[in-house]
Write a protein that binds this DNA or RNA. Structure first.
Lengths: 351, 351
DNA sequence: CTGAAAGCGCTAACAC
DNA sequence: GTGTTAGCGCTTTCAG
């Protein structure tokens, strides 16, 4: 493996001069530059990024931290979109060091150990123990999620989940729904709470109140959907509509509803989330809240490049992305028969 | 950032001793080990992988090279599956450095510059100029594709495209098809040629011959599908069935056939490839050749770990993965009316 | 079992 | 414009 020293020796110049040529330092005589460049070609010299990084503290590498298993990340189409956005925005200016893992893993090690230039963090729980240390460290980092309502120190790009939820409520209330259940998502994710907040405020606008017994928190994507849906439907005066934290969850909820003998959407309306590629092809096609994951990733990456390029620390920048409701066939006007039945149940319970 | 030197100073031992503790070298007195470990905890010391890599030439990082744009990689479900397989098999023993890019990019730089411990390479063209240098370098690397029929120096894991194609032929011939067109895929990919070889040999088994005018090479996934399908259908005595290099290509071909006034599968049968998540949900659902991309990635990663762990150079290992035909609704018995029409055309041309 | 010295390949700071 | 010196944080000899 030819080193800078070898090039210097062959070209008959100092190592520093070679270094200057490699780094496009203008203070090199054209003749010298050319000679050095030729030797570099001939010897097929490539700078050792480890040595460079060790010497100057930069590695040309961005760490991508996703607090999910590889199975979830690559299994659910949304992350692929975000990663695609990141990759394109980075445009080969930074290589990507991917770090996946679920739970409270010490991802700060990515920085500590690999000395990445910056981090993009996705799906980070609010109570993540690394958070404070990370923000204090001054390492450029951008989140594609929010961490807490008042977190103003961090750079983030995040969809406006509350607004998405309010749009869902507008839609459902227009269809006559008043009892609405929420499979909110993981309790430790800010987005889950925003979703519930949006539902609550949306209902309030119509003089309705969210029955907190119809709100369930649970994991993303897999496993808990059926159980939670059944739990909610087992409450007194069960809801006529279910709002889910993602499309997979919605699919599971629909499955559970079928097992309970309900028809979707005739008996119960179900709303998915993310408008993933699943949504249009599922039967029934899912009404879902669309987020632009590609753009989310791209904006985060662009911001990271800015932060890394900046000489002075930049003030944090926070971007709220709009969400929009895509209406398909998993939601429908509330079933009169069931509504009456529910009303009777309430009367009975109330007596 | 606390360094090994700091730890050594505080613990009152030499740097080498700290190094031994960090690297689990057994030749350390238990008391010393414990003291050092405690100081490491207290000071929150993390080894600098750059420095370590510079000193010993190992980086705990695997380069993942995919010769496609990020758009293709994350847009087509198959790569996500492979990446998921890789990530899980690597099991955090190696970090993943992702390098995407289409064309003859100098991906050897990943090795040269980042000094990765090994490479997993996907979708590499046979005429890749880096190939020889890469194989000569002795860097552990595993391909999830073949490079040439006689390439025995490389480690690879690849589906048996020829066998997949033969299964397709069995299916199509059973349905009465004898004139079969192939949208083979990129000319520079070995898989494309294997696909055509399988078709040719498959037909031969039935005493049929592949009309080479009905074979077209083109890019993967996007763009060329419609044009190529139309080109093939414009040949004298056009085929009654089209075999495509991927499911997206099949979708495009079907689109083009509709534009030409053909019905699928009544007039022309179309076979997709990969059995991606697209296949079952497209209208008509695609008959497609299934490959287990997850397993392909997982096996490649496992092999890479072996190669890296090995002290002596290991003999290359080559794994051919089975493919299976999933029959859906885009293929059907050949249309008698058209068959007669084609026969007339042949008669006319022949006269 | 432990330590001292040298060096991995590069760049920063300062000469000239 | 160019060269010299020192050192980034670690591991590898090789001694003890």
């Amino acid at each position: 493996m030819t080193s800078l020293r070898d090039v210097a020796r062959v070209a008959g110049v100092s190592m520093k001069t070679v270094s200057r040529v490699v780094n496009n330092d203008p203070k090199v005589a054209p003749a010298t530059r050319q000679r050095v460049q030729q030797v570099i070609e001939e010897m097929n010299y490539r700078p050792n990024l480890l040595a460079r990084g060790l010497a100057n503290g930069k590695t040309s590498t961005a760490g991508i931290v996703i607090n999910l298993t590889a199975d979830d990340v690559f299994g659910y189409p949304l992350f692929s979109d975000s990663l695609r956005g990141i990759a394109e925005a980075l445009n080969n200016r930074l290589d990507m060091l991917l770090h996946l893992g679920h739970g409270k893993f010490p991802y700060l090690d990515l920085f500590h150990r690999h000395r990445v230039d910056g981090l993009i963090l996705m799906n980070i729980p609010m109570d993540d123990p690394n958070l404070r240390g990370l923000l204090d460290s001054g390492l450029p980092c951008v989140f594609t999620c929010r961490l807490a309502a008042d977190e103003t120190r961090a750079n983030w790009v995040d969809p406006d989940f509350a607004s998405g939820a309010e749009q869902v409520i507008d839609h459902l209330v227009a269809l006559g729904h008043t009892r609405i259940g929420v499979l909110a998502g993981p309790n430790h994710l800010f987005s889950a709470h925003e979703r519930v907040r949006g539902v609550r405020e949306g209902l309030k606008r119509y003089g309705l109140e969210l029955d907190e017994r119809l709100v369930c928190y649970g994991e993303l994507f897999t496993g808990s959907g059926r159980r939670l849906a059944k739990h909610i439907m087992a409450q007194p005066d069960p809801p006529t509509a279910l709002i889910c934290s993602d499309d997979l969850m919605a699919c599971e909820a629909i499955y559970a509803l079928h097992e309970l003998g309900y028809d979707v959407p005739d008996d119960v309306s179900v709303v998915g989330w993310d408008d993933s590629s699943l949504a249009p092809v599922f039967r029934p096609p899912l009404t879902s809240v669309r987020q632009d994951a590609y753009q989310k990733g791209a904006l985060a990456a662009k911001r990271l490049l800015q932060l890394i390029a900046a000489t002075d620390p930049e003030p944090p920048q926070q971007t709220l992305l709009p969400m929009s409701l895509i209406i398909r066939e998993s939601t429908a006007r509330v079933n009169q028969r069931r509504e009456n039945y529910s009303a009777q149940q309430v009367a009975k319970t109330g007596s």
